[in-house]
């Protein structure tokens, strides 16, 4: 079967199944409507909305990750042809990966992988 109809069918199944489960829950639960309550803050009412500008201390790691993530775009096509292209393709790709790893080592020396 082609991918598209298979995926569409599975999506429809999943949506139907989940919707069905919610319907069943309407009947089986002690009450059909959700209970509105304060979020759990171990015994106190929340002082503010939790949604906030979260201090993401590992933002430097995300930049490193992006470099490698873009590299993955080359990786998949490369995987298909590496056996045909031979040693040259292997050397070129791993030289490139080596450069990226050098970046990782540099970032590590700069303390990007440590944040606590």
């Amino acid at each position: 079967m082609d991918a598209l109809p298979a995926v569409a069918t599975m999506l429809a199944l999943a949506a139907g199944g989940i919707a069905g489960l919610y319907l069943v829950h309407q009947v089986t639960a002690v009450a059909a409507d959700p209970l509105r309550a304060s979020p759990f803050v171990s015994g106190s009412p929340p002082a503010q909305h939790a949604m906030s500008r979260f201090h993401v201390r590992w933002y430097t790691v995300t930049l490193l990750f992006l470099a490698f993530d873009v590299e993955m775009l080359f990786m998949y096509p490369w995987a298909l042809v590496v056996a045909d292209k031979g040693a040259g393709a292997i050397v070129e790709m791993f030289a490139f990966l080596g450069v990226l790893m050098a970046g990782v080592v540099y970032a590590w020396r700069e303390g990007a992988l440590r944040w606590s």
């Binding site: 069943v24 829950h25 089986t28 639960a29 002690v30 209970l35 979020p39 929340p46 909305h49």
Partner: peptide
Amino acid sequence: LLRQRRRTTVAPD
């Protein structure tokens, strides 16, 4: 969990 009630909080997304 089928017996348990659903829950919503204050201004959830």
